[in-house]
């Protein structure tokens, strides 16, 4: 791919452990403004498939904004302006012909707070397939079971699929939201601090689940919790004031960061 050649990899200092991995996302000089506030500055990142990429940084550093730009959810905020390019699987997502709905069908998202719909567990999972026109009851049943199994919550809910999703605990709700996301078999899953509203035990379960999902999905996770990034991710990007300070393999970032600011953040001097 031509785009691959153009990318200036040496700037990003990525060590490639496996040669045959493809980029799912490439951002090129991405800038974003909320009104006059320059929230993302000259972001150049390559994100690879079947990896867990963690994005860390202090509050307000732009990490949430960045992940929401990847599926263009950021455009729901009024007065947002962007420049630069984001290539998803080689296509610029800001391209006029690229339907945002198509992008979001390929790229799933899990939010900070569990946000199931006020519907039954079954209807929550079936929502995605249904809106995209899949109505066959047998196929839907299969998708629901497979997605719930995939999100490691099947055994807990299989006897109450018709009950309202709000009867579940917070941790279960978040795994349900992950299952809802799996139901349309996305290529990439974006996770925006998915455990920030959960207790430690639920957090652990979700982390285990994310590890498991890595085998089949590319996962980009924003986290406030550095230990979490260290535990689950393969690569980590450190954001500060809307800029990428450092992007590298997680063990390198956490053991021998090359930038002083990264080291300061990781050792808890600020943030």
């Amino acid at each position: 791919m031509a785009i691959l050649v153009e990318m200036r990899k040496e700037e990003l200092m990525i060590e490639q452990p496996e040669v045959n991995k493809e980029e799912v996302y490439q951002t090129k000089d991405l800038n974003l403004w909320y009104g006059d506030n320059h929230a993302l500055k000259h972001i150049n990142l390559d994100i690879f498939e079947n990896e867990i990429t963690a994005i860390i940084g202090p509050s307000g550093c732009g990490k949430s904004t960045f992940i929401k730009t990847l599926n263009r959810m950021v455009e729901l905020v009024p007065a947002v302006k962007t420049s630069g390019e984001i290539y998803y699987r080689g296509r610029n997502i800001f391209d006029k012909n690229y339907e945002v709905e198509e992008l979001r069908t390929r790229v799933g998202m899990v939010f900070q707070k569990p946000n199931p719909f006020p519907k039954s567990i079954y209807d929550n999972i079936a929502y995605g397939p249904r809106i995209h026109g899949i109505k066959d009851k047998k196929i839907l049943d299969e998708i629901v079971e497979k997605s719930l199994r995939g999100a490691a919550i099947w055994d807990e809910v299989k006897d109450r699929l018709k009950e309202n999703a709000y009867g579940l605990s917070g941790g279960q709700q978040q795994r349900l939201c992950i299952a809802r996301c799996l139901a349309i078999e996305p290529d990439v899953i974006l996770m925006d601090e998915p455990t920030s509203a959960l207790d430690p035990i639920s957090t652990l379960k979700v982390e285990e689940l994310i590890q498991e999902l890595r085998k089949n999905f590319s996962i980009i996770i924003v986290t406030h919790n550095m230990q979490q990034a260290a535990r689950i991710s393969y690569k980590t990007a450190f954001f500060l004031n809307g800029e990428v300070i450092e992007y590298d393999q997680t063990n390198k970032i956490f053991s021998t960061p090359s930038d002083k600011r990264t080291e300061d953040y990781i050792t808890g001097r600020f943030g």
Partner: peptide, 14 residues
């Protein structure tokens, strides 16, 4: 809650 709308849009809903 706007989180419902976000969840729906994020799945590619119009």
């Amino acid at each position: 809650p706007s989180s419902f709308r976000e969840a729906s849009y994020a799945m590619g809903a119009t």
